[in-house]
Design a protein around this nucleic acid. Structure first.
Lengths: 209, 209
DNA sequence: GTCTATAGAAGGATAGAC
DNA sequence: GTCTATCCTTCTATAGAC
């Protein structure tokens, strides 16, 4: 299938994905999207009516893809540690391929928190926790992970993989003066993050009362 | 000193700080800034010439303030652990008072990485590391922190405090359905983050060869 | 220094031909 | 479905009075 054969709506959507991720809702220009899609502005409106609707379509799609990466935590037959290692490998690889995505999502969500609700409102987080609790009863006890620290642990796990990409502009600048290569750093991070979290959890064993 | 006594330039600057942090460079409107400062648009241009220059002034100032919070790591006479605890208390308290700051800075920097260079280019990160190395030789050996994993550890430390604020829109949404209070969570995080990092580091002792 | 009024450009959206 | 031409609003920036 050549570039020209692709359906117009799809071409517009792909172009919009790139431009919105790069410039954000406010910075994006319909003209830029039209140019990148190889069509004219009027067609954008023909297919998506307004900039808002086009943005909403793009946002729901790409944010959904990012969140879907958290799904493996529900698969059976893996230890907590293996799930964690699997998650970091998958999630970091995905963000490496979509480097603008984390900052884009964080930013647009902070300005319009209602957008994320559309994606998360169908997820029953309490049931999700109960599933994990059932699957990993012994490990949770061993690491002393009680319900009250679950939010702290979950956010910490997400932070270690998302933050390097969200803060890439700063980190890369500092790395330059240290002679550190960002891509190599990210590759190493898949394992480091898993080790780091497991280290923190294992250490809770000794403080276990 | 009443609101009216304050110098005009300062009023404009403060108003611009708020509006830019809330809407970003592209979303901010000069009219909004003028209204909030209680003056008219023309005066904005009289004092700062263009929107770009006004933005640049605001950005350099607020980003500088955030980075300054990393300074305590250089103070003498504290153990690594005490510095870490001190840092999280200070940094999280600061972000609690400026909740829009992290996402604002991350976003604008990713779109214009050159902006951060203006702030960081005068910092000699290599010398900074040498100072820490000298101050904490034994602790670094004990935790097996060699130069090659310093970037991983530093980013992880920053991630645990910055990410909850940068991703607040998402986190707060999920917390709502779990019945978790964000402010309480953040208060707890000051200690949790320090414990978590120390746990991960202490666990490196056992894997020490 | 501060204001009102307005120029001038940019960008989202639509009308209408094909 | 796709295009060109254009409308209309919004926004930055400036001119000029006080």
């Amino acid at each position: 299938m050549t570039e020209d054969d692709r359906q117009t709506e799809e071409k517009i959507f792909d172009a919009a994905s790139i431009v919105f991720q790069e410039k954000g809702m406010d910075g994006a220009r319909m003209q830029d999207i039209a140019n990148r899609a190889g069509i004219n502005k009027a067609l954008l409106h023909y297919y998506f009516r307004t900039k808002d609707l086009l943005f909403e379509a793009v946002f729901q799609k790409v944010a959904g893809r990012l969140f879907a990466k958290f799904a493996p935590v529900l698969s059976e037959g893996l230890t907590l540690e293996d799930k964690l290692r699997f998650f970091y490998r998958e999630h970091i690889t995905f963000m490496k391929e979509n480097p603008r995505l984390p900052a884009f999502i964080l930013n647009e969500i902070n300005r319009h928190p209602e957008r994320i609700k559309k994606i998360t409102r169908h997820i029953d987080f309490i049931k999700l926790w109960e599933t994990i609790e059932k699957q990993h009863k012994e490990e949770l006890e061993k690491y002393n992970i009680t319900i009250d620290i679950v939010p702290q642990v979950m956010v910490s796990i997400a932070a270690l993989s998302v933050f390097p990409f969200a803060a890439r502009g700063i980190i890369e600048g500092i790395f330059e003066s240290l002679g550190v290569d960002f891509d190599k750093y990210i590759e190493d991070r898949k394992e480091f993050a898993a080790d780091f979290i497991m280290g923190a959890l294992k250490n809770r064993q000794s403080t276990n009362k």
